[in-house]
Computed example of a mutant assay.
Amino acid sequence: MTINVKQTLQTLRASDFKHWVTTFWLVKRKLSQQQAKYSVLKVDTDAKLEKKLKQAVTDKVLDTDYQLDDYDFLTADQDKGLLTIASSDTDVMLIQAEIEKGTANAKVEQYEELLDSWAMVIKLEYQDKTIYAYRKINKFNNAARLSHISFIQFKDKELKDLDEKEIFTIDTQVDFFTYEGTTFIANKKEFESTLNFRAGMEKNRDVVLQEFVDLKILSDASLLKEHIGANLNYLRKVSSIQKSGYYKDAKFLEELIKVNDLKKWGLTVENGAIVINEDSIDLVLTLLNNGRLESPINHEIFDASVKKKVT
């Protein structure tokens, strides 16, 4: 993370949000061959809801208990962590480009248009400054599911059925928000789900495995690809391998093979290339991400999927 990102957030937190204008948007998503296409609808809100939506965003922005850290595919529990990633590396740029079309977008006129939304966006803007805050829409906005749900109120010491069909439910938590080219992530799981990160990780898988073969790191990657498949845990590992880039360092690979022989880790190497078999798949993914670590205190060795470099 750059110092500029920290300074940007500090400057934003010093803002007086009183005059920032709030608008509310719904995001629709369609998938075609794992490619996401987004469209948006503007939704008018009354003053009370508008105030609540703005408060949800400013509460998240102003919460100084959140500690900034870089987004990684493999991260520990976030517990008051705010992960950062360049917005250009995500689909938020596609969504925000749609919102920036302004009045060219349709406005919700009928209740049915609210349903089957993918996410909601609260946009705050003042002069040349803009915050986009995102929340994945909960499951109670689908017509089929709503037909099986009863909305009930406890009143006068008894439960009463609310005979109201045009109910749209949201919660005003913020999963992530973007400002000046950076996305700040409070809920990693929902961030990845909202922006179709699995498809991106599957692309990473295919690129990295081909590079393994091209660089003659592996003799064949077909078994590894079959093993990884669409498993989210393995997709995270291979995406982390791509991001760290250790496999592109010839010296690193030379040392890996040397230490494997010395420590008897069990990798089979033929003509300088690692041979994949069923028993070595997890080990290969760990080692290529430099995840086998030794304690300098008692020299115990650990496989660490989550690690943070000490500088």
Rank of each mutant, 00 (worst) to 15 (best):
K160V: 15
K54P: 01
S244D: 11
Q7V: 14
K52Q: 15
I131T: 09
E158G: 13
K52T: 15
N196Q: 05
D282N: 11
S15P: 02
F302E: 04
S222C: 04
M93T: 15
E98T: 12
S39L: 00
F302N: 07
I241Y: 00
D77C: 00
A86E: 08
K258D: 04
S39M: 05
Q210T: 13
S244V: 15
D279H: 12
V284W: 01
L62R: 12
E109R: 14
K18S: 14
Q210R: 08
I281V: 13
F191T: 10
N231L: 04
I297Q: 10
N277W: 05
A250Q: 07
T58E: 00
A47G: 08
K107Q: 13
I131F: 04
L41Y: 14
K308V: 09
T268R: 12
Q153F: 01
Q242V: 06
E109D: 12
N196Y: 02
A104G: 08
L94Y: 12
D65R: 14
V92D: 03
D16M: 09
K309A: 01
I149P: 01
D44Y: 07
A36M: 06
N138P: 06
S32Y: 02
L114G: 11
K225G: 07
Y71P: 01
A104T: 10
E158K: 15
D279V: 08
K107R: 13
A76M: 11
V269I: 11
F184M: 01
A97T: 14
A76S: 15
W25G: 11
I301T: 15
D163Q: 15
R135I: 08
Y134D: 04
L215S: 11
E300M: 10
K48V: 15
Q127P: 06
A186N: 05
E50I: 07
A86D: 08
F151K: 12
R198C: 05
D261M: 11
Y126F: 08
K216N: 11
V207Q: 13
V269K: 07
V208W: 02
V259M: 02
K160N: 14
K6W: 01
F177I: 12
K30G: 02
A106R: 10
S150Y: 08
K60A: 15
V208Y: 04
R135Q: 14
I170V: 13
I281S: 00
L124I: 10
F140I: 10
L12I: 07
G200F: 03
V275Y: 03
A143M: 02
L283V: 03
S305K: 12
F73T: 07
T58N: 02
K136L: 03
F212M: 05
K80Y: 09
T182Q: 08
L262H: 11
Q242A: 14
F17L: 10
L53N: 08
T75H: 07
N196P: 00
I301G: 01
L26D: 03
S32E: 03
L53E: 06
D261A: 15
Q78E: 05
